[in-house]
């Protein structure tokens, strides 16, 4: 078992679960699905810097062996942005639910049904 295999399979599981949930008919599952997919995407972005164990990108004189800082910086902003996106989706679905009384996104919901 290698770390690479673990990370790759974790990405696979997260994406599969995320896609499945995103295809459900209600907002909450959709949000869960998108969150799982964004975990997987963050992990993937991070993995493009290759996996390095316990050599954080903290500069010190003479050190040359270190993790790639660039994907980390990318993923850091990605984490915060995906939080903002999740929050927006949650609020959007909530407002939609409050307005039409249904949390379905399959186009079949009767207005007022879930109230």
């Amino acid at each position: 078992m290698s770390l690479e295999l673990l990370v790759a399979s974790a990405i696979a599981v997260l994406v599969a679960a995320g896609l499945y949930l995103a295809l459900r008919g209600r907002t909450f599952q959709l949000v869960l699905g998108l969150t799982l997919v964004s975990y997987a995407v963050n992990l993937f972005l991070f993995a493009t810097g290759r996996l390095v164990v316990e050599r954080p990108p903290l500069w010190a004189k003479g050190v040359t062996d270190h993790a790639d800082p660039l994907p980390q910086a990318l993923v850091l902003t990605a984490i915060v942005i995906s939080f903002a996106m999740t929050a927006l989706t949650v609020i959007l679905s909530l407002r939609g639910f409050l307005e039409i009384g249904s949390d379905q996104v399959d186009g079949l919901a009767e207005p007022g049904e879930g109230a």
Binding site: E4, I11, L19, Y20, L23, F44, A47
Partner: peptide, 25 residues
Amino acid sequence: RDGAIAAAGGIGAGWLAWAVMTRPA
């Protein structure tokens, strides 16, 4: 049906990650 789509997507993404990580940076 959704499960099949999801599984295919997951395997594809995982495989891609594997292919990336096993190549030198």
